[in-house]
Design a protein around this nucleic acid. Structure first.
Lengths: 189, 189
DNA sequence: GCAGGTTATTTCGCCAGCGAATCATTCGTC
DNA sequence: GACGAATGATTCGCTGGCGAAATAACCTGC
């Protein structure tokens, strides 16, 4: 049977021998990134069908899932791995579109609660059906068993990643390449 | 067993029951996206150590791997899942920084060959060591066996995704949400 | 040898997101 | 009860990337 190469196989074939690094690791990471991009593109097209930008849907989704359909900007930003500034931007857009409502906190007036509007919830539901299609198209390449396996493996990595992310908010740089001076040949400009 | 939940577990726990869609599929996709983001962040910090933006490194990387360290913008754009416009932008930046050189094709003068400069190649090599660290940090959560397994599974999905991407350049929309009933939880294959 | 279509790259206008600084409010401590 | 540090959100300037249109060169067929 034909080898059935994906673009990463081709990439690695070219790469082989040109630099002394672990091919398998590169393969995992590259596939991760490519897949994420494909998924994003796929979803984008689907969400467009109900007139939602990708970032809008994502935000609605995280909101819809929470009790009372509300959360604070910080919580959402954390969920979505987004900067505070980015979050404000998204909320501005969503509020403008009437999909979301901002409610200044009463007890602590620094806080803001973001709440899904009826319209927002409806749009989210509508978009869900399309999102489902997009996701199934790609994940559909795996059977139930394989999905479970890939989930377990991805989770393992994600746990590590989240651990690292949490840690690096603390102490300063721990990880550096082994050694050898990378030719700090100064400003090579 | 030990809970050891990642953020996606928590997300799904909230989600459960709020909408009638396949949890496993959502899990796979969400983890993919989160991981990709973590990886990107991680790499960004590493590449910054040698003064490269993420997009610069990626481009150099794809170039360095090719014979003669050259390729056309279109090829690179395809490799990187980038729009033509985006590619031009990247190349402008890289050329300006002296990491890359544009060479107008002689036979076909529409074409442009992009070539790594010495400086570009050096920077790439330097950055590789850091990239390696970033990748290992996360993929390091898996042992050799698991890496192979995850690679195989990701490849399966990526093949599907690339197939779909190639297809959709052709005929107009084929995929739409089946109906209002998303319940086909049966074995798909 | 030129009209019309195709292919490769670039230009243009736009926008989501980031980092850093800012504003508003609360908390801690004396 | 007032001062400074901490916290949550927002504003500001900038930039990478996209989509669509423009540009430039090639390739027919006649």
């Amino acid at each position: 049977m034909a080898p059935l190469e994906d673009s990463v196989d081709r990439h690695l074939a070219r790469w082989r021998g040109k630099a002394p690094y672990d091919e398998t690791v590169e393969a995992v990471v590259t596939r991760l990134q490519m897949l994420a991009k494909h998924v994003a593109n796929s979803k984008r097209r689907m969400h467009a069908e109900v007139g939602l930008a990708d970032f809008e849907f994502q935000t609605l989704h995280r909101l819809a899932v929470r009790d009372g359909h509300r959360a604070t900007p910080s919580e959402l930003a954390a969920d979505l791995l987004l900067s505070p500034a980015g979050m404000t931007g998204r909320l501005d857009a969503l509020e403008q579109a009437g999909l979301v409502r901002r409610i200044r906190g009463t007890a602590d007036r620094r806080r803001v609660d973001v709440e899904l509007t009826e319209h927002g919830h409806a749009k989210w539901l509508a978009a869900m059906r399309f999102q489902d299609v997009a996701e199934r198209q790609i994940v559909g390449a795996l059977d139930e068993r394989e999905r479970d396996r890939v989930n377990a493996l991805l989770k393992k990595m994600l746990l590590r990643a989240e651990e690292l992310a949490a840690a690096d908010s603390g102490p300063a740089g721990t990880a550096r390449p082994a050694d050898t001076s990378p030719g700090s040949t100064g400003p090579t400009a």
